[in-house]
Amino acid sequence: MINPEVQNFPFWRHLDTAWQERLDASVRRADYAAGQEVRGNGSECLGVLMLLSGRMRVYISAEDGREATIYRLGQGEICVLSASCTMPDIHYDVQIQAMEDSSALILPTPVFARLIRENIYVENYAYRSATEHFSDIIQAIEQLLFQTLEQRLVSFLLDEAASQNSDELHVTQEQTARAIGSAREAVTRALKKLSQEGLIRLFRGGVELLDRKELYSRV
Rank of each mutant, 00 (worst) to 15 (best):
F112S: 05
A104M: 07
E150M: 05
G54R: 06
R114G: 15
G198M: 05
Q175S: 07
L169M: 08
M50G: 01
R128W: 14
L144Q: 07
T131Q: 13
T172C: 02
Q151K: 13
V111W: 08
R204D: 08
S53I: 01
D24E: 09
M1V: 10
D136G: 12
L81C: 13
Q75V: 13
I200T: 05
R13D: 11
S135P: 00
K193Q: 09
Y32V: 00
M50L: 07
Q196F: 11
E132M: 12
V154F: 03
T148F: 03
A186Q: 10
A98G: 00
T172P: 02
L52S: 06
R13V: 05
V122N: 11
K213P: 04
Y121V: 09
V48R: 02
T17I: 11
Y32T: 00
L199A: 07
D101Y: 13
S129V: 03
M87Y: 05
S129D: 08
P88T: 01
T109A: 15
I116V: 12
E118P: 08
A30R: 09
T176C: 06
V219M: 14
E197Q: 15
S129R: 12
I70F: 06
I70P: 07
N119M: 10
N3T: 00
L107E: 02
I70K: 06
D89T: 03
R189A: 06
N8H: 07
E208S: 14
G40H: 09
Y71K: 01
V111P: 10
Q151V: 05
D93C: 12
A104C: 09
T131M: 14
